[in-house]
Every structure is written in C-alpha cells, then in structure tokens.
Design a protein around this nucleic acid. Structure first.
Lengths: 165, 165
DNA sequence: GGGAGATCGTCTGCTGGACAGACGATATCA
DNA sequence: TGATATCGTCTGTCCAGCAGACGATCTCCC
C-alpha cells in the first residue's frame, strides 16, 4: 500500500533520490488530476492551460506554451478544443496582428473555480502523509526551486515582466 | 533568466501550483541529468535504473519497472543495453526460474559512483536558489510525500518488504 | 520607403516511445 | 495431473512530440 523511498543510505554516497521523488510524485499528481478533470479536454493538461491563461495572462500563445513546457504546435490544437468548449477564446492582439491573446471566458472561469476545488482536494489526498504545515512548506520550497531553476528560455522573462506588477 | 511562479494570489482561490512546480522542476532535472549522463544508454533513465538496481535490489524485473514507472516491455530492451555495456547483469533467480535477478557489475558500480557525483552537482545547480538547509528540507519532504503517495500497485509493497531489512 | 530578417500561429510529415496482446517457460494450487 | 497465474520477451499498433515549411506580420536598417 505504501511505496518505499529508495534506500539512499545503502551505499552512503547516493544522492537523495530527488529525481525519483519528483517523478513518482508527479506521476501520482497526474493520475489524480486527470481523474478529477475527465470532463475537460485533455484532462490535467487542459486544466493547467486554463489555469495559466486565467492567472497569468501570458502575452502570446508561444509564451504560454514555453511556460508549460508544451510544444507550440501542440498548443494550437490544444487551444482549439478549449475554444470549442467555450472555456477560452482567441482575441486578436491589437498591438501585434500576428499574435493572439488567449482570454478566459466567463464559462471558463466558472469551470476553473470548480476544477480548482477538485484539484485542491486531490492534492490534499496526495500529500496526506504530511502535516498541514509541512505541505505548505513543500509547496513553497517547490515553487521557489522551480522558479529559481534556469528555464533556458528567455521568453519566460517576458511573462515575468507582464505578470509581476 | 528566471522563471516566475504562477501568480496564485491573483484570483486568491487558486491552489498553489503544485503541478506546475513539479513539472517544471522535473523538466529541468531531466535536462540536467540527461546532459550529465550522455555516455549512459538512455541517459537519465538508464541512470535511474542503474541506481535503483544498485540501491534497492528489486526482486524482479517487473518490480523494478513498477517502481520506476516504466513499462515492463520497455524495461526489457532498456536492460538489454545496460547489460551490453557491462553495467548490470541478469542472473537466473535460484528460487524462481522464470525470474531474473538484476545485479550491478563492478564496472556498473564504479560508473554509478561517478554518475552520482555528477548528478549531485547537477542537482545542486538546479537548487541553487535555495539555502543548503532548505535543499535538505525539500529533499526530505519530497521523499516523504512521494513515499506516502499511494502507488496504485501492490507489487511495490513487495519491494518495500524486501528492501526494509 | 523598401527590403532583409525575425517572429507568430498553423499545418504537414515523420519518428520514437508507450501500450496492448500473445507467447513459451515456469510456478502454484486444486 | 491439470488449470491458472506470473515472469520476461517479442510483435504490432498507435499517438504524442518534434522538425520543418508556410503565410502573415513586425522590426530594423539601408
């Protein structure tokens, strides 16, 4: 019923299994969230797009894709479906007619609120082994670590500038 | 140069972006480790297999695959290559002639020690934004969270029993 | 103003990996 | 002994992801 963390002390020198922990936890997270988002196109990934669009308002579709680590060609048909379900919409960018600004619809906002609650519940289940204070600590440390990790892509900096005011 | 964590406070109710943090961090980890393991078959994944085999001695190939979240058919040719490079070897299990016990070779152990050092360095680079104490805290919390997360696969329990002396 | 080069979003193939299914060999249990 | 399950392997299929090209547009420099 319970997985065991790799025995890092067996050989002494082994790095505490950061990769394994991240992969295992993300795997579980993905399963939980996919189950919670069955009615959203592309499941958990669709939720993440919807969430990013709503909370960050990335300037371009490419910036959105870069932030989520999704290929831009994938983002195209992924958004196609979200648009088809009236969750987001593509608006022409008045400043750049090549670009499209992705905006949430009212319906999308409502759906996201519902999904947020479900995802939050799923995450609490996922972290059931930790005390509430530890969960918060983990979330914060993770966010900071991920934020500090070099993203290899300067377009993220654009997002940062837009989001931060 | 620096990514920004999604603005969770923008709408107030958004769950702190656990999924995004995990995905982003794992993405970076993967890139770093892949770069550090260019000379190992299948890169970072080969490293994880080698590491798991060495430190956990999973009873069967299937258990190893389950633990790492790899399909058993994939594990076959993945091990094929590791065997071909004399990093691990398949030994017939005396207790079950269907099964094969995967064991590190001396060469594999030496290679792993070298890789561990490189991976450790890569991880330190990855977590450069955190204080040393925070890094340890993150590692421990992650390991505990991943360990506590239900693995949906009872074969992991077998591993647990075998590993825990 | 006009041309060169870069960028945005889209579309088209291709390819590698993931997965289902079947198989022989073996273990387990009735 | 026979029925059923498991282990590792192999085969075939399928799909997500990636490279590349494209028209439209922006930006910069001449």
């Amino acid at each position: 019923m319970t997985a065991t963390a790799p025995a890092t002390t067996a050989t002494g020198a082994g790095p505490s299994p950061l990769g394994w922990s991240l992969a295992a936890l993300l795997r579980e997270w993905s399963a939980e969230v996919t189950a919670a988002c069955v009615d959203v196109p592309h499941g958990g990934r669709g939720y993440e797009v919807l969430s990013a669009v709503t909370r960050e308002a990335p300037p371009t579709q490419a910036a959105l894709a870069a932030r989520l680590g999704i290929d831009r060609t994938v983002m195209t048909y992924l958004l196609d479906e979200l648009v088809g379900c009236d969750l987001v919409e593509r608006r022409p960018d008045p400043a750049d007619r090549r670009a499209r600004r992705i905006a949430v619809t009212d319906h999308g906002r409502a759906v996201l609120a519902d999904l947020d609650a479900r995802v939050r519940a799923a995450e609490d289940r996922l972290l059931a082994g930790l005390e509430p204070a530890e969960r918060d600590a983990l979330r914060h440390l993770l966010a900071r670590a991920a934020t500090g990790a070099a993203p290899h892509d300067d377009r993220c900096a654009v997002v940062a500038r837009v989001v931060e005011p």
